[in-house]
Amino acid sequence: MRKKWYDYLWIWSILYFTLGFFNILFAWLGMIDFLVPLIFAAVGGNKGFCNHYCGRGQLFRKMGSEWKCSRNKPTPAWMSSRWFRYGFLVFFLTMFGNMVFQTYLVGAGAASLKEAVKLFWTFKIPWDWAYSAGTVSDWIAQFSFGFYSLMLTSTLIGLIVMFLYKPRSWCTFCPMGTMTQGLCKIKQHGKDIKQ
């Protein structure tokens, strides 16, 4: 099959983390990966993003299948079960909300900017080389650090499950995937009722 332009979006995934390594403000570009899937689902009623345009899914596929970095063992059933998927989504959104709240605190002057990346919501890694204080408003920088942490953490989880199980095991409980599938199901349910 001939490759299409969007078959190379895995490069975007690598580029995103590289750019954020040198300048944390590039983390804002991750909002594309956050909003586009939701627009696809809410407007088009499809998972076109997951199916064709998700750079992360493609990267896992590339590394896991083509570069043979996956053990290719079956994903544990609980990992794709409904309670785990929705549980992880709730957890992820809570952490996202917490990150937005931290941004608000910094913006309101109640907290100071922390130039660090937090991995797995626990481990603080100094990341001060990627930002010169005062370049932009503190809250813009704080959001960048927070969002980059979230993106890096989820990619690392994805890489771990890619190695342990199937290349795209992450997709079974990816919060974006759960949200978009949920939206599509609601939309489809509405259509079924109308008919």
Binding site: M1, C50, N51, S80, C184
Partner: peptide, 14 residues
């Protein structure tokens, strides 16, 4: 009921 609609099967199908 279990499918998450990720689309991996679309890509792998020749």
């Amino acid at each position: 009921k279990r499918c998450v609609a990720c689309g991996e099967c679309i890509i792998s199908c020749r």
